[in-house]
Design a protein around this nucleic acid. Structure first.
Lengths: 325, 325
DNA sequence: TCGCATTATAAGGATTGCTTTGGGTTTCAC
DNA sequence: GTGAAACCCAAAGCAATCCTTATAATGCGA
């Protein structure tokens, strides 16, 4: 079996015209070159060099190998270069899948930073709800999945709806507080009110729910508060939720992240207790954390999440009180 | 440094979809595949495979390497195949240089046999006198040189005219007897004469000499017999020598091999003593005897020489008595 | 939940590769 | 012709690599 090493040595010998010069060119000793040539000759079964006096030339077989070696070694260096570009973040591809409200705030900042720092790295994005996102990750369709999970009643933090993330790398990005949404002028939105609102105070309202996980968590939340919500609408289109609430058709509980890109007209935002939150995480496969492009993207996602958390903690976002988590 | 071995393993993994299957395909054990992949990943600095559950896929870097591997491995197998063809005598090139009288009888038989037995082997031929032929061999212009040498007075058998063949492989092909050439009707060509003629009997004749080496040897031969030949013509064109002798312009001493392709009209051939001979040899470089095409050509040259010797020993050639060497 | 399949890890053994050392040969210069 | 330099080979020692076997851990399907 011809090894690439043999061809490198052969090329050096052909170029330099002697074993010693080839050894200097390759940065090794002359016996090493001699042995490599001998190994190559044993591998192919015919002599490749012919020595006459002090001069060293290639045999016909050696010339044939040398001719092929040019393309083979060029292909090898091209392959090395291409992969080295990925290792050096001069190239690479990162495919993201994110839940819809994550794409509007968290992802854009992170992607923009990655693209600015490493223009050769291409980041693509599709949207999917957490269960499907994890499936895409496991299927190899994406490298990073942005998902979220609500704290389960038992306290264990698995993925949503029975999805087990124990085979994934789970990187916690931020705790996304939930807020209540009521029509402007609603009694609970009175000016003098301070402190979080208890969900039980909305027990008699009509409800507008979001995506399936959110709806499921809403039910859990309300039942913990002692009632079952009367859900009349369900849509994962957050501007639509805001519109429905503003129209007085019901109340809603939405994560803050979902509201960042929505114009809040005709609604009042009610702070809820600290137990009303969801955890936003980035998921990836264990092997992929060693891929530089994936690693740097995860890092930028963390930074973007920290930025959002910091904004909230200083009250700059939506004028809400500190979460105090 | 990426080795070809890594790419073979990577390709097997990509094709089979698992390490174990790749190991079976490659004829080795699964840990070997695992280690090779790890070595490859360490060489390029990026993961090349990503394992999710039971399935194994390639990363972007792995795909890039796999893409390059196709061409690289194809080039390697093409190189192996081309050299294997030379090793298997399905291809190859042998360049011969021969002295003129060797080309007319010895070489054609041998070349024809080589071509018949191994149609893929190309044998080419140029003509040159021994000193130049050896120089061409050392310069790498030919693989085999056909030359001859006369026994030196001291008994050492070096190359002609001070040329040292100790760095070459000298393969003795045949002992080429020398014969005297006199005009038809010359007294020494009388019918009753038996046994070899002594050169001294031609001391008073005018001489026609051949190539420089032959001329030099002729002088040695005559001086050993006690006289200095009066050389009036010198040409390495053997038909011309015969013509000059037939015209009565002198006598000559020529090797038998040189006469095989010459029509002997108007001349008489005189047998000389056994000391009047030259050795026809095939020369090559030590490294080249391991080249199959060169080796088989040398073998056929030996066989052709044996055939010529056998013809002479049975008296089938020129009607001369046995050499009894 | 059990059983089969796959992978990772560790250790042993063998092979390979590289270097150093020494010797023979060729070539060039004085 | 002789000395010096360059080149190559051969052998020995050492280190690294590779492959194997054996074992443990994990994942998947019945």
């Amino acid at each position: 079996m011809i090894e690439a090493r043999y061809l490198r040595v052969l090329r050096a010998v052909a170029q330099s015209g002697s074993f010693s010069a080839a050894a200097r060119e390759l940065g090794c000793t002359q016996p090493a070159v001699s042995q490599q040539i001998k190994a190559l000759e044993q591998a192919v079964g015919v002599p490749v060099v012919v020595r006459s006096g002090r001069t060293t030339r290639l045999t016909e077989a050696g010339e044939a190998l040398h001719r092929h070696a040019a393309g083979i070694l060029a292909g090898l260096t091209a392959a090395e270069e291409e992969v080295a570009a990925m290792a050096g973040l001069r190239a690479g591809r990162v495919r993201l899948v994110a839940f819809p409200s994550g794409s509007s705030s968290l992802v854009p900042h992170a992607v923009a930073e990655v693209r600015a720092a490493h223009p050769g790295v291409r980041v693509s994005l599709v949207e999917a709800e957490p269960p499907e996102a994890a499936a895409m990750l496991r299927a190899g369709d994406v490298e990073i999945a942005l998902a979220f999970r609500y704290p389960s009643p038992s306290g264990a933090r698995l993925g949503p709806a029975g999805d087990d993330w124990s085979d994934l790398v789970v990187r916690s990005l931020l705790d996304d507080r939930l807020v209540g949404l009521v029509p402007a002028g609603h009694p609970l939105a009175a000016a003098g009110r301070v402190g979080p609102v208890n969900v039980a105070e909305l027990a008699d309202e009509h409800w507008i729910a979001g995506c399936p996980q959110c709806r499921s968590h809403l039910v859990d939340l309300c039942e913990s508060a002692g009632f079952t919500p009367l859900i009349e609408f369900a849509t994962d289109d957050y501007p639509a939720v805001v519109g429905l609430v503003a129209a007085g058709l019901g109340v809603a509980v939405l994560p803050l992240l979902a509201l960042e890109a929505v114009r809040l007209a005709g609604v009042a935002v009610l702070p809820l207790g600290p137990e009303a939150c969801r955890e936003v995480v980035a998921l990836t496969l264990p092997d992929l954390v060693n891929v530089p492009a994936v690693d740097v993207t995860l890092g930028r996602l963390s930074r973007a999440a920290l930025r959002i958390s910091a904004l909230r903690d200083t009250g700059a976002s939506l004028g809400l009180p500190h979460t105090g988590a």
